[in-house]
Design a protein around this nucleic acid. Structure first.
Lengths: 102, 102
DNA sequence: CAATTATATAAGTAAATGATTATATTAGTA
DNA sequence: TACTAATATAATCATTTACTTATATAATTG
């Protein structure tokens, strides 16, 4: 059982629209930074900083593959967060309307 | 299905430790402002303002009974939020260690 | 090795947020 | 009607937050 403080810290990570959208995107597939930047139509440093927070909070994993860094969800052992993320709306349309960054 | 923006707004309400604790308290029973003030050991205006946000966000109900105003959870038709609140730690000990405000 | 691409980090700024203190409102009571 | 108790609202302040612009790092390619 987690403490209220731990839970509110995790919820704070999800309470930002950009970060919550990133989580919704990663629900479909892993993505590199430039993918997310393109889909969310914002700047690269903005996304990088949000990804850092999500990673520090243990909500996502990062994995470098040559010049790209791929991010993916990390919600094992996170019961209530997984339930929550599972109920985010589909981002399929947003993902498909974009060509990919390379 | 709710939009990501609606969901992040609701999560923002829960991402503050004080407000999340209030929700955890109300999970056990309805309470008036002075109860919550006493349990959380903070000031009355602080709690009043947090309660206002939760009420504006539709997460709690208020009901006046003579000079007291009682607050209670309002999570019907809020699937994922209900699941979340249900998993908050018990506040029984905190509630019992306090005498009541009148 | 120079140029390019992908990403991270740092610094600055404006806006949002939570808490406090002071004051107003509302209901009960002497 | 005056006084008190419960609550709300307003004003202020310090902190945090998200975003931007500029710069640094790392890998790839010519």
């Amino acid at each position: 059982m987690q403490s209220i403080e731990e839970m509110s810290d995790e919820l704070k990570l999800l309470s930002d629209k950009t970060r919550l959208t990133i989580m919704a995107l990663l629900r479909h597939q892993e993505m590199c930074v430039c993918d997310i930047v393109e889909i969310l139509e914002t700047t690269q440093p903005n996304i990088s900083q949000h990804l850092k927070k999500l990673r520090m909070g243990g909500l996502i994993n990062e994995e470098r593959r040559s010049q790209w860094i791929y991010y993916s969800l990390n919600l094992h052992d996170k019961g209530y967060l997984k339930q929550l993320i599972d109920q985010l709306p589909s981002m399929e349309e947003n993902i498909n309307s974009v060509k990919g960054c390379t």
